[in-house]
């Protein structure tokens, strides 16, 4: 295809991505180094028969003028990055100097909003991803051994947790684990503790969110692995059997190596998706015990005040996190590409 034809074909989609994905990234970077203008105050001296009084009021006109002249606000450099709501450089330094052991240090750090969110996001990402891969793999093996008439039905029901809107899925589970819901009641009965409430404890909330994460994403791994199992080389499997491989050995030395590229694919996709965990926190109403990076951005944007600079700063830090997560893949692709050309 000629360059010119290619250009015209690709133009609409490239334009859409440039305007609404690339430019917003530039926009958050710019927003993150500016703070909104402070209101311009003016002091007016008003005199009456009893004497003169100075009153301070907001000069609306001057404030508006300043805002119109520089809509981005004041240049702040990296100040927002260093403040308490983000990297909290001073607080971390102080905590390190006054620490009484590592545990104490991490406890102090965990009270800072950014690090708290980071802690949950990373835990969620790196616990849910391996779990869902293992779980999806076992489901795929089990469904594959079903009678073929049952397979379709099993796939239908297995797809549901993934297809359903994340917010709605988490709400459905949230209502069930409510202390008056069916799962909540069952747990109270199981642990014979009538006051047990999953919502009230940080540990249980994290477990609840992780269970939701696995429930939601395991079908994806299942479907991909199931498709991989259909292309399993039967000859290799048969010859391994003739050589006396046990069922476990067949899985270990034939099935898993065959599915390995798919495992990498699922892991990559799910790392990206789990890193932006957000809807379950809203659905489970869990912000008191667990916040994620996406959630603090949402919270900054959504409030009455619309703290745009703060949200932009967290966004930039999140994008850096994504970049670090993606870097191994990108480096590998780059190497493959260089070898090819």
């Amino acid at each position: 295809m000629k360059h010119k034809t290619f250009f015209w074909f690709i133009l609409p989609t490239a334009l859409a991505m440039l305007l609404f994905i690339a430019l917003p990234i530039v926009s958050v970077v710019i927003q993150s180094i500016f703070t909104p203008h402070e209101q311009v105050l003016k002091v007016v001296e008003s005199c009456d028969p009893f004497g003169c009084k100075e009153t301070t009021s907001v000069d609306q006109e001057a404030t508006q003028k300043l805002r119109d002249a520089k809509p981005l606000g004041q240049f702040a450099g990296l100040a927002i990055y260093r403040d308490r709501g983000h990297l909290a450089v001073d607080e971390v330094k102080a905590a390190w100097q006054t620490r009484e052991g590592l545990k104490d240090f991490f406890k102090t750090i965990n009270n800072l909003p950014f690090y708290r969110a980071m802690g949950f996001t990373l835990t969620f990402t790196f616990v849910v991803t391996p779990l869902l891969i293992v779980f999806g793999f076992v489901i795929a093996l089990a469904v594959n051994s079903l009678h073929r008439h049952l397979k379709g039905l099993a796939i239908f029901f297995s797809l549901l947790p993934m297809i359903v809107t994340p917010l709605i899925g988490s709400l459905i589970l949230f209502w069930m684990v409510d202390s008056r819901g069916i799962v909540g009641t069952a747990l109270q009965w199981l642990f014979s503790d009538p006051n047990l409430s999953l919502k009230a404890s940080t540990g249980y909330t994290w477990i609840m969110l992780i269970v939701y994460g696995v429930w939601h994403a395991a079908p994806f791994a299942f479907v991909v692995f199931y498709a991989g199992l259909q292309t399993l080389p039967q000859d290799t499997l048969e010859s391994s059997m003739i050589d006396g491989a046990s069922r476990w050995q067949q899985i270990r030395y034939v099935v898993i190596p065959h599915l390995m590229p798919l495992v990498t694919f699922v892991a990559l996709m799910q790392l990206m998706d789990n890193f932006r965990v957000f809807e379950p926190i809203v659905g489970f109403n869990a912000q008191a015990h667990a916040t994620s990076l996406s959630w603090i951005i949402f919270n900054d944007l959504g409030g009455e005040t619309r703290a745009l600079s703060s949200a932009a700063t967290t966004s930039v830090l999140t994008i850096m996190g994504v970049a670090i997560l993606l870097s191994p893949v990108l480096i590998r692709t780059w190497h493959d590409f260089k070898v090819k050309h």
Partner: peptide, 22 residues
């Protein structure tokens, strides 16, 4: 182009929204 698309695919949507609002 495809690699750029892959990177864009990984962007958390809320970070993009933070860029649009202003």
């Amino acid at each position: 182009f495809l690699i750029a698309a892959l990177i864009f695919r990984a962007m958390p949507h809320i970070t993009l929204v933070a860029g649009y609002l202003l």
